[in-house]
């Protein structure tokens, strides 16, 4: 290969974009409503970024001159860092804004911030907020393409995409797999995005958890509900654990952490019901000894928790790349 020729890895994202597969949204606010083709497109592009990242190369010209603002109304280290890294690897100017939600007038802050962002000529806006639907509201008011980095108990689309990419790389496919999502479904935006993505892509999705943490009519989302881990995990190809927040115990939805661990915490005994090669996933941060046993979380043969983090950067690069060319911004 001649020296002037770009490395194939460098070309892959560009070729994929020219393939004519469209992502038809201006924003990424939710997985719900996306078509399998759109999800597949984002995953294919992310796959190419995994290779690019592993090759040690960057694509710093892609988002050169573009401004990416990480607007976090809720504390987050890993998601914010992941978006920051993704933006920088593509050459964007990345700005992190943390806005305290402790002030009384949260909504005022949200729309005032939107006005400020418009004045700053922000191109890509990554938002995390403790209220469901806050990114939707913001998307109505800002010019930028909005990426939901987690809103209340609604959705966390990039988490579902990175989970799907991790599964696809390990299992070679997504369609037809049996996936058990376990724990606090009611308060989990990760669970919602994963349910939408995995059912859209043709998985058999189960949710497993205590009845007080399974929201109303969950079965209508196209999943099967279990309260018993042994039954819910039987034959599963992937076991996704969710974080249990301590406040659930204060609110009386769970009597105690040890009771929770006894019935819904993932240990090797419960895991034995799943397929022998079942993957273990967790969006992090983990509560070891509450929803997951350390021996399982650190099992190098089964746990892909570390890999999820790597996929996170690639998926976010793919999302930023795609939205920067989206219907609202055809100037590339």
């Amino acid at each position: 290969m001649g020296r002037s020729m770009p490395h194939p890895v460098d070309l892959w994202p560009v070729l994929l974009q020219r393939r004519g597969v469209f992502y038809a949204q201006k924003h990424l606010l939710a997985i719900e409503g996306l078509h399998p083709g759109e999800i597949g497109h984002l995953l294919d592009l992310a796959e190419s970024y995994v290779l690019l990242n592993r090759s040690g190369k960057t694509q710093r010209d892609l988002l050169r001159g573009r401004t990416l603002i990480n607007l976090f109304f809720e504390d987050s280290t890993r998601t914010r860092t992941s978006f920051e890294l993704a933006g920088k690897r593509l050459g964007a100017d990345v700005i992190n804004m943390s806005v305290s939600t402790s002030s009384v007038n949260k909504g005022e802050t949200l729309l005032d911030t939107a006005t400020t962002l418009n004045a700053m000529q922000c191109d890509l806006l990554v938002v995390r907020h403790d209220q469901s639907g806050a990114p939707n509201l913001l998307a109505q008011k800002v010019d930028a393409a909005v990426i939901n980095a987690g809103d209340g108990t609604h959705e966390h689309p990039t988490q579902a995409l990175l989970d799907a990419l991790t599964i696809r790389r390990r299992k070679g496919r997504i369609a037809g797999l049996t996936i058990a999502i376990c724990g606090d479904i009611a308060h989990s935006r990760v669970a919602r995005s994963n349910i939408h993505l995995l059912t859209t892509m043709g998985c058999e999705v189960r949710v497993v958890g205590p009845p007080t943490l399974i929201p109303a009519e969950t079965a209508d989302l196209g999943v099967t509900v279990f309260h018993d881990m042994a039954k819910g995990l039987a034959g599963a190809d992937v076991v996704m654990m969710l974080r249990l927040q301590r406040e659930r115990m204060n609110k009386g939805q769970i009597p105690s952490a040890r009771e929770y661990f006894r019935f819904w915490g993932l240990d090797h005994q419960k895991l034995a019901h799943a397929q022998d090669d079942a993957l273990i996933m967790h969006p992090g941060p983990m509560n070891r000894g509450v929803e997951i046993d350390s021996a399982v979380a650190d099992d190098p043969d089964r746990s892909v928790i570390r890999e999820q983090v790597e996929m996170g950067v690639a998926v976010r690069m793919a999302v930023l790349d795609t939205l920067s060319r989206g219907p609202g911004r055809n100037d590339l």
């Binding site: 719900e32 469901s132 639907g133 809103d151 209340g152 108990t153 609604h154 959705e155 935006r189 919602r192 929201p215 109303a216 009519e217 969950t218 209508d220 989302l221």
Partner: peptide, 10 residues
Amino acid sequence: ESAQATRLGL
């Protein structure tokens, strides 16, 4: 309380 509220995370 419904599937819609569950989907919207409300």
